[in-house]
């Protein structure tokens, strides 16, 4: 094709080179400024590394019973003490973390995906579809989660997969509402009409033109969902409906400790702190991501 038709203005060219940073780069710079989020990321990575490397790190086997050393307070041999069967609490905490974190991440991902799917369809197609899906969301919202999960898990059994599925299928509503709301505003943008004028169909437009614009709310929703899912899993295990002993999770460790909470507080303290720290970290990361990914801040 022919040479440029017009001489470009130099001012414009300079403007571009000055701002030569990609979106990802800008987001990373903003995220780094959020100290709490950066610290949380490091801590969470450390927790995850410890948990998933548990077989290498843990000083004992998670189900090694030592009846001569039951309910020992923290000491040099057992840094977090031992439980009612003389099992090393630190070891069980590491192994338990694997399950709690896995369930937390997978259930949150599943919930977000479902929520994104339902929210996108509702927001993009509007009208009847919107009405139907949002009433469904309201319905799902109105059901008290914990009793329902207890009932379902009583039937579905308590494998990790079924827990992930149950928690995931019951935690998509918030994401669905957020995604729907964002799509409602994003789809009014001229670039959506422009994309249609270029001949694109619904699916490519939703996937490539709309969802990237609301990626931040989805990511943030997912991180917040991780915390919720970990807490739900813990609650279930605490109530005895979660993963079966002797496999440890943070929740069933808490449950085991409830009878002796007054006399052996470390049995409650450490699993409780593990849950608290992990959920807090995830929430702070979500907070940091929100700041980093929101272009208006």
């Amino acid at each position: 094709m022919a040479a440029p038709i017009m001489e470009p203005q130099t001012a414009e060219v300079e403007g571009i080179t000055a701002a030569q940073r990609s979106n990802a780069r800008i987001a990373w710079d903003k995220f780094r400024k959020h100290k709490l989020a950066v610290a949380s990321t490091c801590l969470l990575l450390a927790i995850a590394a410890l948990c998933f490397l548990a077989p290498l790190i843990a000083p004992y086997k998670f189900d090694a019973i030592d009846l001569r050393n039951i309910r020992r307070p923290p000491s040099a041999r057992h840094v977090f003490g031992t439980d009612g069967l003389g099992r090393d609490l630190f070891t069980r905490l590491l192994y338990g973390g694997r399950i709690s974190v896995t369930i937390g991440l997978s259930a949150a991902l599943l919930g977000s995906m479902l929520g994104t799917l339902i929210g996108s369809a509702a927001g993009y197609y509007g009208r009847g579809v919107d009405n139907l899906l949002m009433r469904l969301t309201d319905l799902a919202y109105s059901i008290p989660t914990l009793p329902l999960i207890i009932v379902i898990s009583a039937y579905a059994g308590s494998s990790i997969a079924s827990l992930v599925a149950i928690i995931g299928f019951l935690s998509w509503m918030t994401t669905a509402r957020v995604v729907r709301g964002s799509i409602l505003s994003v789809k009014e943008n001229e670039y959506v009409v422009a994309a249609r004028a270029l001949g694109f169909g619904d699916l490519p437009i939703i996937l490539r033109h709309i969802l990237p614009n609301i990626g931040n709310s989805i990511i943030i929703g997912t991180t917040l969902g991780v915390g919720n899912a970990i807490i739900l899993e813990s609650s279930l295990s605490f109530l005895g409906m979660g993963v079966n002993p002797p496999t440890p999770t943070w929740g069933n460790m808490l449950m085991d400790s409830q009878a002796t909470m007054a006399t052996e507080p470390w049995l409650t303290f450490f699993p409780g702190m593990a849950i608290l720290m992990t959920v807090l970290c995830v929430n702070f990361i979500g907070d940091g991501l929100q700041d980093a990914l929101d272009p208006t801040l």
């Binding site: 979106n23 943008n189 001229e190 670039y191 009409v193 422009a194 994309a195 490539r208 033109h209 990237p212 614009n213 990626g215 272009p295």
Partner: peptide, 8 residues
């Protein structure tokens, strides 16, 4: 300003 997608 609004007819091009800001995130692509």
């Amino acid at each position: 300003m609004t007819s091009l997608n800001p995130v692509l």
